[in-house]
Each structure stands twice: as C-alpha cells, then as structure tokens.
Nucleic acid binder design. Structure first.
Lengths: 144, 144
DNA sequence: CAAATTTCAGTTCCACTGAGATGG
DNA sequence: CCCATCTCAGTGAAACTGAAATTT
C-alpha cells in the first residue's frame, strides 16, 4: 500500500475530473451569459411543463432559496414567466417562454460540446462504460 | 438524442458522484477534527520532505493563499513546523512533526475507509476500470 | 394543528484574484 | 527590472440554514 499518493483514490480522481468538468461548463455557460442553475431549471421546465418553483427545485436538485433568485434572473431575461396558481395560492406557476425554448436549445449545444471535450480522451466504448459505472454510484447515492 | 435529461451527461454524473464523495470525505474528516486540505498538505509533506509553502501548494494542488491558512491551523495543532529558510529569505520551510506523522497515518485509515464506502456498489474489476478511465481524463487535464 | 410554498437574509466552503511586501 | 514567495483581503459560485408569511 502506498498511502502517500492520492492519484489512485477514486475520491481524488472524481474530485479532479468533476472540477475540470465544472470549469469547462462554467466557462462555456459564462461565454453565452448563463449559468448552470439556469440551464438546469430550463431543462426541468421542459421535463415537467409549467410547474411550481418547489417542484422545479426538486427536479433540478436546486435548493428552494436558490431557485427563487435564479428564476428572477431568468424572468428578467424573458426566458420564463411566473404566474399565480389559481388552485393553490401558495404556489407560483413557472412556464418557459418561446425565447426560453430557443435559449435552451442554444444551451443544449453548449453542454453537448462540453461533454465531447470532456470525454475526448476516451473511446466510444470507454465513454459508455464510464457513464455506466458513474450511474451505478449515482443510483446507490439516490437510495440513501 | 434526448437533450432534456441530464442523467446521461458525463459532466452531471461526475458532479453528482464527486459531491457524494466529497460529502463522505468531509464528514469523515470532521469526525476526527480535520479537513481535506490538512490531509492533502500532510501527504505532500511526506512526499516532498520539508518544503516551501509554495511547493506544497503546487504538490497538493491548493492555492497559495489557502495554503497559508491551512498550515497555520496545522501548526497550531502541532502537526507541522514552519522555519525560515536560511538560503532564501522569501521562503518558509515547512516540516512535518512526529505528531503530524501519527495524524497522517490516522487520516490514511479514514480516507481508505471512505474509498471503500464510495465504490461499494462496484465489483473489483469495475473499480479498477473506473480508476483507469478517470485517470485517463485526469492525465489529459494535467497536460493543459 | 401540521405541512408545503415562497421569500429573504445570512453562512459556509472552496477556489480564486489583487495587492503589497520581501527578496532572488 | 522581472520574477518568486508569502500574506491578507476580498470576491464569487454553489449549497445550505433559519425564519417568516401565506395557504392548504
């Protein structure tokens, strides 16, 4: 055992790779004037259709307090709309606008190109295997 | 292509897994009154022997300004010592103490048990493959 | 009453930037 | 003059906590 080298620890490798991925994503988003939260919320909106802020937060795995601020920005950019829910007055129903859909398609391209850049050193089979293995870790995580 | 689902993106899976790993590590370190930076600096000290703060930072991949604060804590706990470098008065030479070595062994055990917990859902072969694939990503990263 | 939603304010952690002082 | 080192101060994103108001 060589406990002095971090480079074989799964935790270390994961942390390094994720930091790299995060940096690629953050700078790619920044180049088009967006952020990870914005993309994730737009994705959740397309998945769910018009939805409450709380359910969007659960779907995008973003804390409720952060959802408020991010949606305020998206609303200011005309990408989403908030309206009161007539059936439940606690809720505000959020829907994506036409501009929001266009923006999402644009961000999809940005994200896809980042994926490509990230896994560039791997073969097709290796990419699939990486996704499969990480999926196994994520699945267990989710069961906690 | 289904661009609306994040769950197949390597960046997303990496982020989720790394967050999980980080949480496991952080709480394991916290239980014994330590932190990731402390462990990484102690490892770097064992790798390099007595070294300047700047070189420790490069080895542990910790920003110079953060190295200062972390070493101040380690010094307060008696785990490292700082002394002026007679040959280069800009430098402070950091060395690990006997208590620091004992601490490092203890933290090695903590870290090892976290690795085990993290990759528990994978078979031995799968663990090796995950490490290999992440290593490929990390290697390219390092060449930038 | 308990629970859910929205919101604000504040905190923590990590990683970085900028600047200044010292010295090579 | 330029570069490296150490240090402090401050910034910014991500994620969270606590609390309050409203409504179910």
């Amino acid at each position: 055992m060589a406990p002095t080298r971090l480079d074989d620890f799964p935790t270390w490798l994961l942390s390094r790779s994720a930091a790299h991925a995060h940096q690629l994503l953050a700078s790619a988003f920044a180049e088009v004037g967006s952020r990870g939260y914005h993309y994730r919320l737009l994705v959740a909106l397309e998945d769910l259709g018009p939805a409450s802020q709380a359910s969007l937060g659960r779907s995008a795995e973003i804390d409720a307090s952060d959802v408020v601020a991010a949606l305020t920005q998206l609303e200011a950019d005309g990408l989403v709309e908030r309206s009161p829910d007539p059936d439940d007055k606690r809720r505000r129903i959020v829907s994506i606008t036409a501009a929001g859909r266009r923006r999402l398609l644009e961000l999809d391209r940005v994200v896809s190109s980042v994926q490509e850049k990230l896994v560039a050193p791997l073969s097709g089979a290796e990419r699939d295997e990486l996704v499969r293995l990480l999926g196994l870790l994520a699945r267990v995580e989710r069961e906690d």
